[in-house]
């Protein structure tokens, strides 16, 4: 287990911004294909988000997994709540659920961008 300071720090981070992505690398330079995919989705949706690079701090890397009881990175948080990793964010984008989530929380996003992703990736 990581110390309580790390858990407190994580809680403050995810409550400090509407949208927070724990990822490998930065949003300008993702270091993992799964992190890169979520960054791309958020970028096309025009959503402003805070990125936390888990590679820069082993305590955060371990601590975030304990915080969410989720063993993999990336992890997306909206309004302090864990939404999911790469598979879930991708599915929610293709199904339109991500639009509903952002609308529900009053988070600005580009609906046309979301529609474009769906048009280019028809579900089988």
């Amino acid at each position: 287990m990581t110390d309580t300071d790390t858990q407190t720090q994580i809680k403050q981070t995810i409550e400090g911004s509407d949208v927070v992505l724990y990822m490998k690398g930065s949003q300008l330079m993702p270091q993992c294909g799964f992190s890169n995919q979520v960054v791309n989705i958020l970028r096309i949706l025009g959503v402003q988000f805070t990125d936390v690079d888990v590679l820069s701090d082993p305590n955060v890397r371990q601590g975030i997994k304990e915080f969410s009881e989720w063993p993999t990175i990336p992890q997306l948080y909206v309004k302090g709540e864990f939404v999911g990793g790469c598979d879930i964010i991708t599915e929610m984008t293709l199904s339109g659920e991500i639009d509903q989530l952002f609308e529900k929380h009053g988070i600005t996003f580009d609906k046309a961008g979301a529609d474009k992703i769906r048009a280019e990736n028809p579900r089988s």
Binding site: F34, W70, P71, T72, F82, V83, I88, E91
Partner: peptide, 23 residues
């Protein structure tokens, strides 16, 4: 979805930490 994936991760258990980098 989150609850379903958690069940899968739980079933996989410590393989996630030790062997499997991505699932």
């Amino acid at each position: 979805r989150v609850q379903r994936q958690r069940l899968v991760f739980r079933a996989v258990g410590d393989l996630m930490d030790r062997k499997v980098h991505a699932l």
